[in-house]
């Protein structure tokens, strides 16, 4: 069998898979939060129990024991804001880095491909906390980077590699026939990416990117260690001055849980918006 025939065979297989509509390709990514989905009844109920449980518990604690719970709740909001800022900036930047990395990983150019692949391999092999220390303390011996900037850089570098793999898989999942059709009309390889491949890959990419979004939000708690005043850091500041460790970290944990649950709900709504093309 010639290669051409094999390729045709592959596209025929993919054609059938395509007919079941988008969503038939799911990129599974580990270390993500559980996204509540109506098809998973247990998880859906669990989301409600956790969300309303957390809200109820926070209200209850503040009513029953306003000192220190109410005080903590008034103390940490700037931390929530910082956590939010770090998350948003890092997500945005890591999406850009991820797209470039993903395209690089698919590049036919050996140098570009090797550079992108090595970046992914190295970054994924080093714990985020170590990367954070490296950028803030190790590189800090040459040039002092402000904590907030160092945090965003570390998260971007780390998550850019993960996003890169998602982009690569998403683009790779699009049938090669799409590229051939576009090229045969006269589209350049870049125009083919831009108008034909990436718009289709977006659907496959969005759900795992949502998962990364949540994972990144949780990982921002690590930046508290390099003096970024995020939610966890603010909690620690309160706890060390009052010695209310149990109360403070109970509330901090509940707040993280609430934010994560809220985000996973948004990701779920976005996924449901991805109706098949019809």
């Amino acid at each position: 069998m010639s290669q051409t025939d094999q390729r045709t065979q592959q596209s025929a297989d993919k054609e059938t898979a395509e007919d079941t509509g988008p969503g038939s390709y799911r990129i599974e990514v580990t270390d993500s939060a559980a996204i509540p989905d109506k098809s998973d009844k247990g998880l859906f109920t669990a989301w409600r129990v956790s969300a309303f449980g957390a809200i109820g518990l926070i209200i209850l604690l503040c009513l029953v024991k306003p000192d220190p719970y109410w005080d903590i709740l008034l103390f940490v909001p700037d931390g929530v804001l910082v956590t939010f800022e770090v998350t948003m900036l890092s997500i945005l930047l890591s999406l850009i880095v991820g797209l470039i990395t993903g395209l690089g990983r698919l590049s036919g150019n050996t140098f570009v491909n090797l550079t992108a692949s090595t970046y992914v391999e190295v970054v994924r092999g080093i714990p985020l906390l170590v990367q954070l220390f490296y950028i803030y303390y190790a590189l800090g011996t040459f040039t002092q980077i402000p904590p907030f900037t160092a945090a965003v850089i570390a998260l971007t570098v780390c998550y850019g590699a993960y996003m890169g793999e998602i982009f690569r898989a998403g683009i790779d999942s699009i049938d090669y026939g799409q590229t051939e059709a576009a090229r045969s009309l006269g589209f350049s390889s870049w125009q083919t990416m831009r108008f034909v491949i990436i718009p289709q890959a977006m659907r496959t990419i969005l759900p795992p990117v949502g998962n990364e979004f949540i994972a990144l939000l949780k990982d921002t708690s690590l930046v508290s260690i390099i003096a970024v005043s995020d939610l966890l850091r603010r909690g620690r500041e309160f706890a060390t001055s009052t010695f209310d460790y149990f109360e403070t970290f109970t509330l901090v944990a509940l707040l993280y849980l609430l934010i994560t649950l809220f985000l996973s709900k948004i990701v779920n709504i976005m996924e449901n918006r991805l109706t098949p093309y019809e």
């Binding site: 025929a12 054609e15 395509e18 026939g177 799409q178 059709a181 093309y277």
Partner: peptide
């Protein structure tokens, strides 16, 4: 093409 390759989006 044999497999049409229409743009599904």
């Amino acid at each position: 093409f044999q497999n049409f390759n229409l743009f599904p989006h």
